[in-house]
């Protein structure tokens, strides 16, 4: 399938807000590509990203309108995830659509259990299968060599960059079809940032990726498509090359040239 996710005429209003924070968003997420979302602070990037796995629903009272269509490989069709209501369906959605946050969020448990936790939740019980899949995930997140001898140590004892890769391993272990990154490197040093960027290049062989970033160079380096958002609108969406070299909209041009933001 060419698009793993299709966002159509999507509006989002936070609980108690008078105005929608997202207005008429139309955005395709291409399969096995990296899509970057850029735009000034407060324009709605996180809000849009957090709609894609419906993590917003942890807090009650928000309003979704429109469609977010997720490709269902088994049924060979797109399903509107905004129709989901039951907790089980939400859980299944979040296993398919993983999320990495700005601040690394290791769980208060061992490195091994950090990765195994989601697997156990998804029903993997067999210990040797768990071990194998934890190792594959840690290798996939380029962390295995650094932690193979200390799997029993607490995950909170790792460095910030390692913690972030642990969170990626945790998400990757569930074999998601999409990974959502919300400014995953803004709390990291340049070396860890490079490691994460290389990792994203690797991951996109198997996983479609959406990344919110404030770092224009990062968007250029790793993304195939870019969406520029402004005040709740998706102002421009195109291949990353076009958005940065031939922006159609004046606002986009000003933003990518660093004139505001």
């Amino acid at each position: 399938m060419e698009t793993i996710l299709e966002i159509k005429n999507f509006n989002f209003t936070y609980a108690g807000a008078l105005e929608p924070s997202l207005k008429h968003i139309d955005l395709p997420i291409h399969t096995n590509k990296v899509t970057a979302l850029i735009g000034p602070s407060g324009c709605g990037k996180s809000t849009l990203l957090r709609a894609m796995n419906r993590i917003h629903d942890i807090y009650p009272g928000h309003t979704y309108e429109g469609q977010i269509l997720l490709w269902d490989q088994e049924a060979q069709k797109h399903n509107n995830i905004l129709y989901l209501e039951k907790e089980d369906d939400m859980i299944a959605l979040r296993q398919k659509v993983g999320m990495i946050f700005q601040k690394p969020t290791p769980f208060p448990m061992s490195i091994f259990d950090n990765v195994a936790y989601g697997l156990r939740l998804s029903g993997v019980k067999n210990h040797s299968e768990l071990r194998d899949r934890v190792e594959v995930a840690l290798r996939g997140a380029a962390l295995w060599e650094e932690v193979r001898d200390r799997l029993k140590e607490n995950g909170m004892g790792l460095s910030g960059g390692q913690q972030q890769r642990l969170c990626i391993a945790r998400a990757v272990a569930l074999k998601p079809s999409i990974l959502l990154f919300d400014e995953p490197t803004s709390a990291l040093d340049p070396k860890s940032t490079r490691a994460i960027e290389e990792l994203i290049e690797e991951l996109k062989q198997e996983i479609s990726i959406v990344i919110v970033t404030h770092n224009m160079q990062q968007a250029v380096r790793i993304s195939d498509y870019t969406g520029f958002m402004y005040l709740g609108d998706l102002v421009e969406y195109d291949t990353t090359e076009n958005v940065f070299n031939l922006p159609k909209n004046e606002l986009t041009k000003d933003y990518v040239m660093g004139r505001f933001g």
Binding site: I58, G98, F101, G118, L121, C167, R170
Partner: peptide
């Protein structure tokens, strides 16, 4: 949020 994001109830 991170817990819910990996499919925890």
């Amino acid at each position: 949020e991170a817990g819910m994001a990996i499919g925890g109830s």
